[in-house]
């Protein structure tokens, strides 16, 4: 499992520019510790869903979100998915926050990028597996996107039994712990998936965001 350095640098603000040599040196120095501390784990499960205008019905639970409904409008099933880098990364980042803030910041960015690429890899494998059955997967959609409330973290984690299977739970205020973790719903459809709703171009902050990807990468 490797960190995508380019993505990590983008999180640090170097989206269009070359990083300075020191930042790059810190990044290279941090990577072994991070890759050693990270224990990527995920779990998932498929469910039939019923999509209506403002909500979806899944495993007997109703999830109210217009954005999610639009995203899943052609789907009959979905995958509930969650993943984490584990608590070792949290401890590492916290230790660095006491001794070396620049490295701590860089570690944050590297961990975020590591998680994203690990999840992307899993998703690619799933996409191929489902393609064999003539099915397409939508992009993942997580609590916190649009009007899909963070309070659904609890619901998703409960259905997946995530605390037991991968050690992922959430706090009273619906924060995932360990911190570098993801939960998501991935729609399954037998028609073309809805337009990409993950890229920068579809985001409401796309005019002002500091972390926006350069236009060329943003095409996908």
């Amino acid at each position: 499992m490797r960190v995508n350095k380019k993505e990590a640098l983008r999180y640090l603000g170097f989206s269009q520019l070359e990083p300075d040599s020191q930042t790059e040196a810190i990044l290279n120095a941090c990577l072994p510790a991070l890759e050693n501390a990270a224990a990527f784990k995920y779990t998932l499960r498929e469910f039939p869903i019923a999509v209506s205008e403002n909500s979806i019905m899944l495993n007997g639970d109703v999830i109210k979100s217009r954005a999610l409904s639009i995203h899943l409008k052609t789907c009959t099933h979905c995958l509930l998915f969650c993943a984490t880098l584990g608590s070792g990364v949290d401890t590492l980042i916290k230790a660095y926050s006491k001794t070396d803030m620049p490295a701590c910041l860089v570690l944050h960015a590297c961990a975020a990028s590591l998680l994203e690429s690990a999840v992307d890899n899993v998703q690619d494998e799933l996409r191929q597996a489902y393609a064999k059955r003539g099915l397409c997967l939508c992009e993942r959609f997580s609590p916190g996107y649009g009007d899909f409330s963070l309070s659904y973290q609890q619901t998703l984690l409960r259905i997946l039994d995530a605390a037991k299977t991968i050690g992922l739970s959430c706090t009273e205020k619906s924060m995932l712990v360990p911190l570098k973790s993801i939960t998501a719903i991935i729609g399954i459809t037998n028609s073309e998936p809805t337009t990409n709703s993950r890229g920068c171009s579809s985001c409401t902050l796309n005019k002002t965001c500091l972390y926006k990807k350069p236009a060329i990468e943003n095409l996908n």
């Binding site: 300075d20 020191q22 910041l105 860089v106």
Partner: peptide, 11 residues
């Protein structure tokens, strides 16, 4: 300058 550099200067 970017945030990592700002923090390096701070250190």
């Amino acid at each position: 300058l970017f945030l990592p550099q700002l923090l390096l200067s701070a250190e």
